[in-house]
């Protein structure tokens, strides 16, 4: 046993000597992952400590699950948790189907030039930063000069202060996210549609099927596996709600419907420097995310035989 271990070690050293160039190429990336992704995982310990930035991680005393107890009694955290689920859930219902519908519609366009132009335009917002999207939203919804309120007042309605009204936050957030991403997300479904065998359509046409029937009976069932995979990915990423965009759009009056766990962490940790409490909230978030992504991957592996990663 000892002998074979020594042999392994020896052959490893030998490999390393002969193949040092390969390990040299690998080294910077391994160091980067350790330094910037794995070392912070050690920092998660402060979720269980009374952390002070002057004492550092090691010398801060342990407090067990005290921060989690505080969190689960904190109304603001509980609200953030339910808001996260609500915003993700609403996105699943209202935003998820739109790229599918778009792809089906693109597929029915006969004129290749018009199709390409339309695609080029609807993919574009994906490449625009969330800061600009937020700027456009703020501009459009401005109560005095925004085009939306100009339209409302010209139709005889009162102007609405959208960004300060809690009941409007989610529609505005989800609607503008659809504007930004739905076009680009349709690419995956278009690729699936491109893979549908043309003979299916030909034989359906011989049987006298209409385009509407072919869309419902051929195209949609054929891309169903892709839809299911995308749905699973989406559920796996339920905790990720685009908080970088929320931070730009929410204000104290809309926190009750807009504040999610990640924005809560940002405010308590980075703006309020309660590092330990915010880390506990982050760990809670990450564990849920991990469980969701892990089970999503297991399910998709069973369903489609190709795993996601």
């Amino acid at each position: 046993m000892k002998q074979s271990f020594r042999n392994t070690l020896h052959s490893f050293a030998e490999d390393f000597r002969l193949d040092w160039q390969l390990y040299l190429l690998l080294a910077p990336m391994v160091i980067w992952f350790v330094l910037f992704l794995y070392k912070p995982m050690y920092g998660l310990l402060i979720a269980f400590k009374d952390f002070s930035i002057f004492r550092g991680i090691e010398r801060s005393p342990w407090v067990g699950f005290a921060h989690f107890e505080v969190l689960f009694q904190n109304d603001m955290f509980i609200r953030a948790f339910w808001n996260t689920i609500a915003i993700s859930g609403l996105g699943l219902i209202f935003a998820f189907p739109i790229p599918i519908i778009l792809a089906l519609m693109f597929n029915e366009v006969q004129n290749a030039v018009a199709k390409r132009w339309a695609q080029t335009i609807v993919y574009l917002p994906h490449f625009i930063s969330v800061v600009i999207v937020a700027g456009i939203v703020i501009n459009f919804l401005s109560p005095s000069t925004g085009v939306v309120n100009l339209l409302l007042t010209s139709l005889g309605f009162e102007p609405i202060y959208f960004l300060t009204r809690p009941e409007w936050f989610r529609p505005v957030f989800i609607g503008s996210s659809v504007w930004k991403e739905a076009g680009f997300e349709s690419i995956v479904y278009l690729a699936a549609i491109a893979g549908v065998s043309p003979t299916l359509y030909e034989s359906a046409r011989v049987d006298g099927a209409s385009r509407w029937q072919m869309m419902w009976r051929i195209t949609l069932p054929c891309i169903l596996p892709t839809i299911i995979i995308m749905l699973i990915i989406r559920i796996g990423n339920l905790v990720e709600v685009g908080f970088e965009y929320i931070i730009l759009l929410y204000r104290p009056p809309t926190y009750e419907t807009a504040d999610v766990v990640s924005t809560f962490i940002y405010r308590t940790g980075l703006q309020g420097t309660q590092y330990d409490l915010a880390t506990a909230a982050g760990l809670f978030n990450a564990v849920i995310a991990f469980a969701l992504v892990y089970s999503a991957n297991r399910i998709s592996r069973r369903l489609s035989s190709t795993s996601l990663w």
């Binding site: 910037f36 912070p40 995982m41 998660l44 590092y275 990450a286």
Partner: peptide, 19 residues
């Protein structure tokens, strides 16, 4: 595996910032 793991799990905002 160690690289793929970071797709599933990361330390989060605060530990990254403190690091």
């Amino acid at each position: 595996m160690a690289i793929a793991f970071t797709l599933w799990f990361n330390a989060g905002m605060i530990p990254f910032f403190l690091n």
